[in-house]
Amino acid sequence: MIQQVFASNIIYGLIMLLFILGIYGMLEKKNFLKKILGMNMMQVAVIIFFLTLGQKLGAAVPILIPGVDNVDIYANPLPHTLMLTAIVVSLSILGVALALLMQIQRQYGSIEENEVLRRMNDE
């Protein structure tokens, strides 16, 4: 029962919550690292959304069982493969973001937005 409710509706509400929390973190938090964490939350929400699309109750793993040609009994593998790509993309964005953050810390001695902007305008 619970499984069914989660699979049908509640999961989408949770994904939306995660997505909006992520955006809130990116826009409202003044600490750059917290912005990056919010960004990651938002991307994870999108990834879970895609994975939910591939779910089916009681489906088999998408490996062809000899003699069973009925596609209905297999889970959809495509969202997972797509999300592998999306995970790689989000990992590379995280890498670039952290590298930028290190440079900002070296340059301005802080990763608080207000502090960095103040020091930037002082120069």
Partner: peptide, 16 residues
Amino acid sequence: PKALVASFKYLILGTI
């Protein structure tokens, strides 16, 4: 130096 912050800002918004 200033480009770092501009780039970070663009990264956050661009990813959204």
